[in-house]
Design a protein around this nucleic acid. Structure first.
Lengths: 197, 197, 197, 197
DNA sequence: TATGAATGAGAGTTCATTCAT
DNA sequence: GATGAATGAACTCTCATTCAT
């Protein structure tokens, strides 16, 4: 009977953009309101505090991302395929919404601590997948799961950073194959693996 | 003449610890003073503003780190050795002072933009070293320099994160060899490289 | 044509209850709306502002009360009877609607100043009645009208307060006789008065 | 070594004056600061919130008052003398500091609820003294303690109100004798008491 | 008539900074 | 050099009020 909700999405988007550029604590509610062409009070219809708002956006997006990553990884049977699929999901998000990707990266240091203890994060899932792959003998001999995980997760995050800071251009999706191959060469068990070292 | 600049170090340390835990904007001068057992006004004998303080610490530490990285890389001639040496410097800092390592990592998103345009950062140096190595034919065929850089830089940063969040323990210095080897298998040119793929 | 001004009463009641519990300034329109099961904007169909609303309720109720007090006092000729009648009216209101009684008491400090200069308030009427009684020789010798008024008005107000805070129970109407007698003993002129002191 | 505390008293006084005139919720921190010739932030060196500030002033003053009332009542042995002494303390406070007296009166409706359960308030003490007097046979026959208490407490409070609103002038201390006598006539047991009624 | 999303002035509070001591 | 009381701009958040539905 009253007017329909109109401003919520704009405010959320404005907030994320500013959070990414200036940090959460460094962003003022006035800046958010201005960028969203809304009044300062309006965002408080959707949250109890700025921190709360930041958290809800983070959690909602992370849940969605994790769902997609799990789905993608689940469709593959081999470790190599799983890694490629996961990288693909991350880079797809990057290409579709750099800002949100950056927000998830940035919020990791601040907000991830508030996640429920049993919530599986991207690094957590990756480490699990690698451990399972190792159990199936798909990891190269002597490779530590955590080092492998750091390598893959780090490569994905860093390549995104390189893109954000303008060191590379184009779509990250186009680099899924080559980056996954790079990683696989480091950690994967292949037929002629034994001849190495 | 005894005890000049007595409180400076305590304040600096307190500040960095809090910056790492809460972000720069999220840390108050009062918190810093309390943790350093100093008065609120004291830090202003050493700087003009909180942001200034954060910047000076960042810049000073980064300069020191870069000096050591350059030195270490300069003592090697081959790319493989250079990479191992650089990883060694990063992990040595981590083992000696996790807080400062974390601060440099965190400040990258905020303060790195204020660096002089010609200042070479860790990723910048790494990419240069990789490019030079590639020119010497030391990179595996078809490997993109930026992807290689993302992989190495990312692996280093992520393994530190894993340590900070308690996924792994021990000293990172003990992992220099294995992590460098992992990276090298992904990107390095070796004799039996041709047989791969 | 059915149900005109449907929500007004509910809103008015909710408002008074909250005003009594939290003060007028301390009560929000949202609280009123919630308690009245109405929308936030609805009360503005009945008034121009919250303060206005508080005032209108106060003035309307006070007018009604004053009418009843005047009527009751007018039916008596002697001072003793007049006082008893007035106390009776106050306590009748208390028993019928504690909330409204409390509201009139509370609003005295805030809203009474906005009353027209010629508006007769309960203490004003009481003092006038006492002064007229004194002129008829019905007040004990040497008794100051204002002190007598303070005693009667104060006793009435305080006994109500005692009830509200749970110090006494039962209906105040049952105490009209005894309290009026108490007061009369203090201030009234009786045959054997001279023997006192 | 830093400058000495200078503003606290001015701020407290300004706050109480405004609280009395406009209520606690109706007074803004900006108004307090202006009236105290202090900055807005200064009051937050002495309290955690405006409500807190109001409470601390209330509690401190009430404690002091109760101490004086108890002392005064304790110096008397008969009920009549005790009542006169208590009225004296109340009126002495009124004459010395009307504002504070008014504040204690006003805050009764709002803040008294936060008092510890075992805290004895003025009405509480009065009722206790009356009950003890009654046990000693000093109360007139058939007089209810609560009605007597309401009469005394109410008379004291109302006379002050009459003064505040300009109905009477002069010092209330000069009325201690006459008001106490009035009250005593209503409730006290005297030799020729039996002849009454 | 009633709703409740939106508003924005202004509230309470924080906090980087200054400066008398 | 060091202190911490004081400052006041700017912050987060509230809430009386408006108005499209």
């Amino acid at each position: 009977m009253a007017r329909p909700v109109q401003k919520r999405d704009e405010i959320e988007r404005a907030a994320v953009e500013l959070f990414v550029a200036q940090g959460i604590a460094g962003t003022t509610t006035r800046q958010i309101a201005e960028r969203a062409h809304a009044a300062e009070g309006t965002m408080y219809r959707y949250c109890r505090s700025k921190e709360d708002f930041a958290w809800e956006i983070y959690f909602g997006q992370l849940e969605g991302l994790m769902g997609r990553v799990r789905l993608a990884a689940g469709e593959e049977t081999g470790l190599e395929g799983q890694l490629r699929a996961m990288v693909g999901v991350f880079f797809a998000l990057f290409d579709r919404d750099v800002t949100m990707y950056s927000y998830l990266l940035l919020a990791e240091h601040t907000l991830a601590q508030r996640l429920p203890a049993d919530f599986e994060t991207p690094p957590g899932l990756l480490l699990r997948v690698l451990a399972e792959g190792k159990a199936r003998g798909e990891l190269a001999e002597g490779v530590d799961v955590h080092e492998a995980g750091a390598l893959v997760m780090g490569a994905v995050a860093r390549l995104a950073t390189f893109h954000i800071y303008g060191r590379i251009g184009g779509r990250l999706s186009e680099r899924v194959e080559s980056l996954a191959a790079l990683c696989w060469r480091a950690i994967g068990h292949t037929a002629n693996q034994e001849s190495k070292r």
